[in-house]
Design a binder for these strands. Structure first.
Length: 483
RNA sequence: UCCUCCUUAGCUCAGUUGGUUAGAGCGGCUGACUGUUAAUCAGUAGGUCCUUGGUUCGAGUCCAAGAGGAGGAGCCA
C-alpha cells in the first residue's frame, strides 16, 4: 500500500511528471470497457480535466469493475505514464483500485449525457460534479480571491458589516424580518401591535440590504475600506438577474470624488476580468465553447457578436465610455429606434429613469462597450447621494455591461450635514433612526464616495452563464430554498 | 407582482382534425469488441401524458382552476 504519494489531478495532467508512483482520489465521470482494457475518466474537482485511468481487467475482480460506474468515488494507485492514446499527455496505469462509494447507475441522475440547466437546478446537491458547474464555481472562487487581492494591493481594509441590522431606512428594497418572537402568539403592545421591545434585540431587526452605511463609518476612520458579504432582498423578483440572497462588494473611500470613484470602478472590473483570463484558462475555454454552442441555437439576429473570451478581453482592454444622464437622453432622442418608435417605452424627457431597453441600446448598439452613466436627476436616486451644483442632479454613477445591464451602482456621498438633512426630509427618511450616520457629518466630515457591485452579476459576465441561479451554489429565489 | 410560453419514459423532446396497444434520441441494462476519449455494434427494459374538475360515445389532444418551470417587464446589484 505504501510508495504511492497522493496527488490532485491538476498537479499531474500537465505531463511534466511521468513514470512515478501516484495515488489519486476522485469521482468517475465515465467508464469505457472492452475485453482487454478498461478506461476510467476520473475527476477530483481540482481542474475541469479528467485523468485517464487505464486498467487491465485480468488483475481486478469482476465484482469490483462492475461497481465502477459514473458518479462513484475511487482511490486509484499506480504508475503515471505517458499516454499511449491521443487526447491526454499522461495516464494512470492502475495497480490498485479502492472503491470508496458506489453510485447505482439505475438511480444516479447525473449520467454522461447533455442535461439542461433547469434539470441540474433541481439536483443542486449533485450539479457541482458536472463540468459546467465545476468550471463556474472554480471561476467564482478565482474572482473572490481577485477581489480581495485588488483591494489589499491598493491599501483597502476589508470590513465585516452586520448581517442583522436595526435600521430599515435605506429604502433599498423589501427586507427579511429577524425575530425570535413566537409567530403564533407574539407579545402585543397596548395598541395591539407586535411588541418588539420584547424581541431578542429589543427592537425590530432585519437582514441587511446593504453594508454601505456601516462601510461609510469605517471609511471615515480607516480611509479606504470595502465589504464583501451576503445581502438579502425580499423582493418578489423572478428574473435571470435577481436573487433573494446574494453577495455584494461595497468599497467606500474617504477623500474620493465621483471621478475617483469611476476610475476605481473601471480599474476594478478590468482587473477582475483580466485575472480570470489569466488564471482560469481551462475553465474559460470550456465555458467559451459551451457559450458558443448555446449561441448557435439562437436565431442569427439574437446572437452575441463576440465570443465569451473576446468579451472579457474587450472589457479588460478598452476604456469604458462615460456619459452624463443628460447626454444619454440626447443620444436616445436622436437614435433610430426612438425616431422609428421601436422602443416599447418612449423617452419621456429629462427626469425619468431609463428603461432596460434604453440602457441596452446605449451599451450594445450605440457605444458597443461598457458605459458609465453619471449625474442622474436627484428624483430617481437615493437620499445619501451628493447634490451637484445645478441643484437638479446628484453625483451618482451606474456601470452598464452588455447582456446583464447594471453591474455597479455608486455615488459620491453627501458629506454636508444640512444638505443631507434636507434630502432626508424630502424623501421621508426618518432622521432619528440614522442619528449615527448624521453624526459622521457633524464630526470631521470629509468628501467620500463608494459603489456596490453585485458579485453574482460579475460571475455571470465572466462565465457567460445567462441565469444568475447558475452562478451561486445554492440559489435563493422566491419559493425556492430546497437546498 | 404583471405579460407570454411550457409541463408526455431517468433526461431532451415528437405525438396530425379528439379515435384501437403513446413514440424517438440520449442515458440505463444485457451481450460483442485488442487502446477508448460523453467509444462502436447488436439486443432490451422503462409511462400517474403535472394535479383537480369539466365538455364528449371517446381526452396526451378541447375548456376551467391550481401547482411547478422558462423568457420578458417592473424593482434593483
Amino acid at each position: 500500500m505504501s510508495g504511492y504519494k497522493t496527488y490532485r489531478i491538476s498537479e499531474l495532467i500537465a505531463g511534466d511528471q511521468a513514470d512515478i508512483p501516484v495515488k489519486v482520489k476522485g469521482w468517475v465521470r465515465n467508464k469505457r470497457e472492452s475485453k482487454n482494457v478498461i478506461f476510467i475518466s476520473l475527476n477530483d474537482g481540482s481542474t475541469i480535466k479528467n485523468l485517464q485511468v487505464v486498467g487491465d481487467p485480468q488483475i481486478f475482480a469482476e465484482h469490483l469493475t462492475r461497481l465502477i460506474n459514473t458518479g462513484c468515488s475511487l482511490a486509484v494507485s499506480g504508475n503515471l505514464q505517458a499516454s499511449q492514446g491521443q487526447g491526454q499527455a499522461v495516464e494512470l496505469q492502475a495497480e490498485e483500485i479502492e472503491l470508496l462509494g458506489e453510485a447505482d447507475p439505475e438511480m444516479y441522475p447525473l449520467q454522461p449525457k447533455k442535461h439542461s440547466l433547469e434539470f441540474l437546478r433541481e439536483i443542486a446537491h449533485l450539479r457541482p460534479r458536472s463540468q459546467t458547474f465545476g468550471a463556474v464555481f472554480r471561476v467564482r472562487h478565482a474572482l473572490i480571491y481577485a477581489v480581495h487581492t485588488f483591494f489589499h494591493e491598493r491599501g483597502f481594509y476589508n470590513i465585516h458589516t452586520p448581517i442583522i441590522t436595526g435600521s430599515d431606512a435605506e429604502g433599498a428594497g423589501e427586507m427579511f424580518r429577524v425575530t425570535t418572537l413566537d409567530p403564533q402568539r407574539p407579545p402585543l403592545t397596548e395598541q395591539s401591535e407586535v411588541d418588539h421591545s420584547q424581541d431578542f434585540f429589543g427592537r425590530e431587526t432585519n437582514l441587511t440590504v446593504s453594508g454601505q452605511l456601516e462601510a461609510e463609518v469605517a471609511a471615515q476612520a480607516l480611509g479606504l475600506v470595502y465589504t464583501f458579504g451576503p445581502t438579502f432582498r425580499a423582493e418578489n423578483s423572478n428574473t435571470s438577474r435577481h436573487l433573494a440572497e446574494f453577495w455584494m462588494i461595497e468599497p467606500e473611500m474617504a477623500f474620493y470624488d465621483l471621478n475617483d470613484n469611476m476610475d476605481l470602478a473601471e480599474d476594478f472590473l478590468k482587473y477582475l476580468t483580466s485575472y480570470a483570463l489569466e488564471h482560469c484558462q481551462d475553465d474559460l475555454a470550456f465555458l467559451d465553447k459551451r457559450n458558443q454552442e448555446e449561441e448557435n441555437q439562437k436565431p442569427q439576429h439574437l446572437r452575441q457578436e463576440m465570443t465569451l473570451i473576446e468579451r472579457l478581453q474587450f472589457v479588460s482592454d478598452n476604456k469604458f465610455e462615460r456619459v452624463t444622464y443628460t447626454e444619454a437622453i440626447e443620444i436616445l432622442r436622436n437614435s433610430k429606434p426612438h425616431k422609428k418608435k421601436k422602443f416599447q417605452f418612449l423617452i419621456e424627457g429629462w427626469g425619468t429613469d431609463l428603461q432596460s431597453e434604453h440602457e441596452r441600446y446605449l451599451v450594445e448598439k450605440h457605444f458597443k462597450k461598457p458605459v458609465i452613466l453619471f449625474d442622474y436627476p436627484k428624483e430617481i436616486k437615493s437620499f445619501y447621494m451628493r447634490m451637484n451644483e445645478d441643484g437638479k442632479t446628484v453625483a451618482a454613477m451606474d456601470v452598464l455591461f452588455p447582456g446583464i445591464g447594471e453591474v455597479i451602482g455608486g455615488s459620491q456621498r453627501e458629506e454636508r450635514l444640512q444638505q443631507l438633512k434636507d434630502r432626508m426630509k424630502e424623501m421621508n427618511v426618518p432622521e432619528q433612526e440614522l442619528w449615527w450616520y448624521l453624526e459622521l457629518r457633524k464630526f470631521g466630515t470629509v468628501p467620500h464616495s463608494g459603489f456596490g457591485l453585485g458579485f453574482e452579476r460579475l460571475v455571470q459576465f465572466v462565465t457567460g452563464m445567462t441565469n444568475i441561479r447558475d452562478v451561486i451554489p445554492f440559489p435563493r429565489t422566491p419559493g425556492n430554498a430546497e437546498f
